[in-house]
């Protein structure tokens, strides 16, 4: 069965809520994937060049699969590429955490660590209510495990390094702490998603689990990070950051110069 036929079993409010939730997840994976791919060719060491490129490829693959589910659900003639590329910067629904640019290596690792752990809490919240998403998420979680191991190894290395490496890493975590909870902001129509079993727990419950995961990792390494739940509207903003506008210009440049190009 296709996503479209299974979607017809959902009532309208649930479909709307699911579409918003899928768009947020897809945009998150898409934006962090493109940000990570900026390290291709210029990472601090060759192994990390390979690792960040591979992680970016995974994330863009996840984004494509999620946009395809969304395209089937919306059934409005737009395909995954149209959903990914044919929007103005204001229409992206990625978490505010990902409005921060790539920055230096410490910033990249801090952002990946906060995102990977929050995303893991989100993926663990998906229920069996909509099989196409549940099946995809089961597959994605197996891949994300490697991203988490990579991020945790670097968190440990930077935090224990002392000197400038540690100072930059701690500063990056502090800078991102305010926006990191936006990954787990309560989605519109969450009650309908819970009712349909598409979500097995609320994002507020996911946030609590994530906050304790982060605390567990950082406790032996540094003073705790203050993480407060995000406001409801955290994914909507009239004015995306300059960093995101720049990234948008990069990732849409081919699409805008040759609409409909394929290779």
């Amino acid at each position: 069965m296709t996503a479209t036929t299974i979607a017809s079993a959902l009532d309208a409010p649930t479909r709307t809520a699911l579409a918003g939730f899928l768009l947020a997840m897809a945009d998150d994976e898409f934006v962090i994937g493109f940000s990570d791919s900026e390290w291709t060719g210029i990472a601090p060491i060759l192994e990390e060049d390979v690792a960040m490129s591979s992680i970016a490829q995974d994330e863009l693959g996840h984004a494509r699969a999620l946009y395809e589910l969304l395209a089937g659900l919306l059934d409005d003639g737009r395909d995954a590429d149209a959903l990914a590329y044919d929007r103005e910067p204001e229409a992206y629904r990625h978490a505010r955490l990902l409005d921060h640019g790539r920055g230096d290596w410490a910033m990249t690792i801090a952002r990946r660590f906060l995102y990977d752990t929050a995303d893991a809490a989100r993926l663990a919240s998906i229920g069996a209510g909509w099989p196409p998403l549940a099946e995809l998420v089961a597959k994605i979680r197996r891949e994300e495990r490697y991203h988490a191991m990579h991020a945790l190894a670097w968190v440990d290395r930077l935090a224990r390094a002392g000197g400038e490496a540690r100072a930059r890493f701690v500063a990056a975590l502090d800078e991102l702490a305010r926006d990191a909870p936006s990954v787990l902001a309560t989605p519109g129509g969450e009650a309908a998603l819970l009712e349909a079993g598409i979500l097995g727990r609320s994002m507020a419950a996911a946030f609590d689990a994530w906050r304790s995961d982060v605390a567990g990792v950082l406790r032996p390494l540094m003073t705790p990070l203050a993480l407060e739940p995000a406001a409801d509207a955290a994914r909507h903003r009239a004015a995306p950051s300059d960093d995101f506008r720049w990234l948008w210009g990069e990732f849409t440049s081919v699409r805008r110069s040759e609409p409909g190009a394929t290779w």
Partner: peptide
């Protein structure tokens, strides 16, 4: 193990 990630998604170094 040198790295969790290799030249393709399915391989490590």
């Amino acid at each position: 193990r040198d790295s969790y990630f290799g030249p393709t998604q399915c391989r490590s170094l």
